[in-house]
């Protein structure tokens, strides 16, 4: 009974809303942090320029991810894509930087 109780709680509106906000705020932040770091690493510019370009665009990336999280209906899809793409980018970044 307890388990089914928890199960319904996971589907309740407050939890879904909080979860979506978590995905947007924290997930979006981590995702854009990785994305702009990768951007800085791949653009063929001097180091300072690539960093400045990346940080200037970072808010744009974050805002777009934020809006996207709220526009997709299935929450599972949101988490799936965020984690998958984020990991891919992180791996690529690590590969470029030679951390692996």
């Amino acid at each position: 009974m307890v388990i089914s109780h928890i199960g319904t709680w996971f589907k309740s509106a407050p939890f879904l809303v909080c979860s979506r906000f978590f995905a947007a705020i924290v997930g979006g932040y981590v995702f854009s942090a990785i994305a702009v770091s990768l951007l800085a690493a791949v653009v063929p510019l001097p180091k300072t320029d690539s960093v400045l370009l990346a940080v200037s665009l970072s808010i744009l990336v974050y805002a777009c991810v934020f809006i996207w999280v709220f526009s997709v209906r299935a929450l599972r899809k949101v988490y799936g894509i965020l984690i998958l793409l984020g990991t891919c980018q992180a791996l690529l970044l690590a590969f470029i930087k030679g951390w692996l």
């Binding site: 770091s37 951007l39 800085a40 180091k47 300072t48 960093v51 940080v55 200037s56 970072s58």
Partner: peptide, 27 residues
């Protein structure tokens, strides 16, 4: 953007091994 190096220091941190300080010294 005025607070960007507090919000997103990561490009500077990944591009420079010594972190944000090295970036500013270079900039």
């Amino acid at each position: 953007v005025t607070l960007i190096f507090m919000l997103f220091p990561y490009p500077a941190m990944t591009q420079y091994d010594e972190g944000k300080k090295a970036f500013f010294a270079d900039l």
